[in-house]
Design a protein around this nucleic acid. Structure first.
Lengths: 153, 153
DNA sequence: CAAAATTATATTGTGCACAATTAAAATTAT
DNA sequence: ATAATTTTAATTGTGCACAATATAATTTTG
């Protein structure tokens, strides 16, 4: 790549990933609309369907989101009665986030979403499998990087 | 993948891409901070460094962003005197967005950013090259998909 | 050519993301 | 035990994203 090309948009991996992320969210939207939730809210539900109860901090560690993002998002999910928010008995600082009965029922409606998404995307499955593996490899490297930054503080 | 696993977070390509996109933006932030712009603003600058003048619509087509996102963003860049916003003579509806002298000067400061990012990410270059190619392949498929949706309206 | 349809941008409203700050509870150190 | 530190969430403020709507200019139709 010549010196003149390094700033061309078409040469930026970051933009491909940024654009793909938004395009994929757009594919989820109509399906999530029928559930009445947004894409980030869906991610929280995925985690809680798997774990039932987690502290806000644990949830944040899994999704790489902080309280500034999660607090209002969780309050909305609580407003829909899909989750519960309550302080821990042992440690009043920690907020326990847990799935409700209604939240668990939604899992049955959501179970078809992944295959619906695949059908709608209309993309080579092998490409998706490869991409998943490579993206996770990238994420691991980036995670290490952010740990280095943390330690420098 | 068993029926029970389809909703696990670790099996969602969408999440890997979503998380990677945010992680990468985080790497850009300190470098862009020294320029005084955000990541989406940087993308606009990349496009304008390449094209000098574009209508808002053309800019939106390139970045997959609409006027709701771009109008306020461009007003901020204009406030920093990095770009100009003016109506076209031939067609008063179209907004011509163009780079200013000051905006062009910023390109010299930005020229090192891509290699700084690479250094900071500390990731296998071959992995990045492969990922770029595959992400673009995915994007093309998703673009076709969204065209289908458009035609259905 | 006037009415209807289309096109381009702006505006409004909602919901993330995230940095920075605040506040309260728990832990550690003196 | 109390003061200092650390930990956990909540709050505040800024800037995207994007759907929905509004507005004004242009083009197409009857």
């Amino acid at each position: 790549m010549t010196n003149n090309d390094v700033l061309k948009l078409e040469n930026q991996l970051c933009f491909s990933i940024y654009a793909a992320s938004r395009a994929i969210t757009k594919i989820y939207r109509p399906f999530l609309d029928t559930l009445g939730i947004t894409y980030p809210q869906y991610l929280v539900m995925l985690v809680l369907w798997e774990h039932n109860t987690l502290s806000l901090k644990e949830l944040g560690n899994i999704l790489y989101l902080d309280s500034g993002t999660l607090t209002p998002l969780l309050k909305r999910l609580e407003g829909m009665q899909l989750i519960k928010r309550e302080r821990s008995r042992e440690d009043e600082r920690v907020l326990c986030v847990s799935i409700t009965e209604k939240g668990l029922e939604m899992k049955q409606q959501a179970i078809r979403i992944p295959e619906c998404i695949l059908d709608t995307m209309n993309v080579d499955i092998p490409l998706l499998v490869t991409l998943k593996k490579e993206m996770d490899e990238l994420l691991i490297s980036l995670k290490k990087e952010s740990q280095v930054e943390q330690e420098e503080k």
